[in-house]
Simulated assay, not measured.
Amino acid sequence: MTVESNIDATGNFKLAAANRDMWLETPLIWSPHLSERLNSNVYLKLENLQPSQSYKYRGISHFVRLAVQTRGPSVHLFVASGGNAGLAVATAAKALGALCTVYLPVGASERVKQFFRTEEADVHVQGNGYAEALSAARVASESHSNGVLVPAYEHPTLWEGHASMITEAARQLPHETKPDAIFCSVGGGGLAGGVMTGCKRVDWDDVPLITMETSGSNCFYQSLSLNKGPFPGSPLSPADNTEVVHDAENDVNVARLSKITSIATSLGASIPAPAVVKMALTRKGGVKSVHADDGLAMQSCLRFAEDHKMIVELACSATLIPAYTPDLFNQLVPARADGRPRTVIFIVCGGFVVSLESLTKYQQIVDAHTHESTAWDVWCNGEQWKFLDA
């Protein structure tokens, strides 16, 4: 689906019956900067170009559209989110003429509130943190005669929508190439669930998936370590400040973090979707789970802005850490035995909670670290690695 088929002369979304899906087909671009740096063919799937500026619009607009279809135009959508999930719900609801109420935790900035109001969402500030905001949104949705609570990341309908980016990428890659790896960020697991679902659709289930988190928000990494699978000697003992929760439906253990310490707040799920953890543990191509210092994500954010003239959230730039750390990239994606260049895809997942002011702060933090030390800590499937600043 082209951008033109979705947008009318005034910039508003058409609601023609032919436009079954609301998301935009995003470009898959070859990056000359990163391809040269990594001696590989590096492609970027630009999900930051979706209407709400993040990949979340795919799955959430799919969920919202189905809710409107099944519940009628009087449906009232509720969501708890101070970030990209909430904005995706508000944007999709506005396009379909549905009512939307967003619950934000205390401390949400006026700038964030204004983003939601621009999309005509009703904004409520309630709860000290996401869990309390979610509880309030759930109560409100259940008390409404036609209310629907929209999940942020834990629902198969979301993964089905997100999977479309892989269907597109398989068609957009030249000469029907199968990539040597796909990189994506992971918080609660919504994007990873979509990527794995999409890979099954296009016969890429054997393609290695590399999931990236920051070290203060690594509930997915911790969850994989609690199960038999990719980590040597697993299951491992839980990390400090981590509660082990057994999900009987999927027969997996998941980690609930008692505190999120990463600055990459949009990765800040305290517990991942158990079904996505199960997918990762049983996937043919496997999953390499990586978490790294916030500083590396900041550095990648700055370098990506310089190279590609795009500003993305830290959650997105966490994905790009291997792109700007060649030694890490080579460790994660070994050279091909046949000597041909590797082909990889980085999902540029986007995000609207970013500013020029934040980039200035990131630069200060990166400069301070570089002054004190030239090494960065990275963990992959239970192993700790150190990499010098590239």
Rank of each mutant, 00 (worst) to 15 (best):
Y221K: 04
H33Y: 14
V89S: 05
R111Y: 13
L328W: 07
S164I: 02
E47L: 09
G268M: 05
V64W: 07
N12S: 08
L24H: 04
I345R: 03
G161F: 03
V366L: 09
S215H: 08
G339S: 06
I260D: 06
L302A: 10
A335F: 12
L209Y: 03
A248V: 00
A152S: 14
G350D: 05
A133D: 03
G190P: 04
N48I: 07
G72L: 07
A98E: 04
G216C: 00
Y43D: 02
K259F: 15
A140V: 01
T282L: 09
S164N: 10
N19T: 00
F220P: 06
W30S: 09
G350F: 00
A140F: 11
A85T: 11
S373E: 01
G382I: 07
D205A: 10
V348E: 09
M196H: 02
A323F: 07
V378A: 13
V106N: 13
N253E: 00
E119L: 05
I260P: 12
A16T: 09
L209R: 04
G229K: 02
G82E: 06
K278F: 14
G189V: 04
M165I: 05
S355L: 03
T319G: 12
G82M: 02
S185P: 14
N330H: 14
W30K: 14
A239F: 12
W159Q: 01
